[in-house]
């Protein structure tokens, strides 16, 4: 409405800060993520038991809220008598490592491709767009499973494979944001005064697309965590005895009809972590670029 044009909003650092703290989703998400990161970092201090210590005499002890449970194993023990809480705590390390690692690799690939395509246009853009189309045509889960099966499952392999597969959204978003910034007058001005391409990319383009990069990075982190859990669940991801949450669900699956908590506990942990990361990503997008919401 034209009548609203008399209202001016000034965006200051303080107001961005209050926009973050005033955004419920971001605050809840950040709180949960921070808590899980802390738990992962302090795992040796927090875990009551050795997550790999088997005790065949103390198998399948239910959590403490069950009448058969005990405070010695707050979340019970698994089919090999390993303390479930300790495994859950160490499992946070795996999920976070996968999330960070895969997002880092795919972020690097996707950002370089997207920014190049958006900035240089023409043939570069054609090639990148083509590569994105090719990548989207390949079924992620199937390819990841096949490669892990051939190369052999390990944490590094899973991180690398997911990193090499999940760059598509980075490329798509970075390409369109770069295209948008590229057409701004200040980029033309920088070119006019003779700044080098490298300098323009680093000082004009990157700072303006970094918000979108953060949003995609968080969402892809969540994506990678879910995919790792699914791969491990199918037995073709992180290998035992590592305490991956997906693997824990898989190991508990045979007993789930009798001891539902075996799958409920790691599943809820996974759900909470992914939910929290997504809340943060969505929130950052709402705050920095509400028009990109969909």
């Amino acid at each position: 409405m034209s009548s609203g044009s008399t209202v001016t909003t000034t965006v200051t650092k303080a107001s961005i800060y209050t926009r973050f703290t005033g955004h419920q989703g971001v605050m809840i998400g950040a709180f949960i993520v921070l808590a899980i990161v802390l738990v992962a970092l302090l795992a040796p201090l927090l875990a009551p038991h050795d997550p790999y210590q088997q005790n065949l005499l103390a198998r399948l002890i239910p959590p403490v809220w069950d009448s058969r449970g005990s405070w010695d194993h707050v979340l019970g023990t698994d089919h090999l008598g390993r303390d479930y809480l300790s495994r859950l705590i160490y499992g946070a390390r795996i999920s976070l490592l996968i999330g960070f690692g895969a997002a880092l690799i795919s972020g690097l690939i996707g950002t370089v491709m997207g920014v190049m395509a958006g900035y240089f246009g023409g043939r570069v853009d054609m090639v990148v767009t083509f590569l994105i189309t090719v990548r989207l045509s390949m079924p992620v889960v199937l390819v990841a499973l096949a490669v892990v099966a051939i190369v052999g499952g390990s944490l590094q392999v899973v991180i690398t494979v997911l990193g090499l597969l999940l760059w598509d959204r980075f490329a798509v978003v970075m390409r369109s944001s770069t295209l948008q910034i590229r057409s701004m007058d200040y980029v033309a001005a920088a070119q006019a005064v003779g700044c080098s391409t490298k300098r323009i990319l680093m000082t004009e383009i990157m700072p303006n697309v970094v918000n979108n990069l953060i949003v995609i990075a968080t969402l892809e982190m969540a994506h990678a965590i879910i995919l790792e859990a699914a791969l491990s669940f199918l037995g073709l991801g992180v290998q035992p005895p590592l305490p991956s949450w997906g693997l824990m669900v898989s190991e508990g699956k045979d007993m789930m009809l009798f001891e539902a908590w075996l799958i409920t506990i790691p599943g809820v942990a996974l759900f909470l972590l992914v939910l929290a990361i997504n809340l943060m990503g969505d929130g950052v997008r709402d705050i920095t670029a509400p028009e990109n919401r969909n």
Partner: peptide
């Protein structure tokens, strides 16, 4: 009148 950030706009 239109409610906007910061009060009522008497358009």
């Amino acid at each position: 009148e239109i409610p906007v950030v910061g009060g009522m706009l008497h358009a």
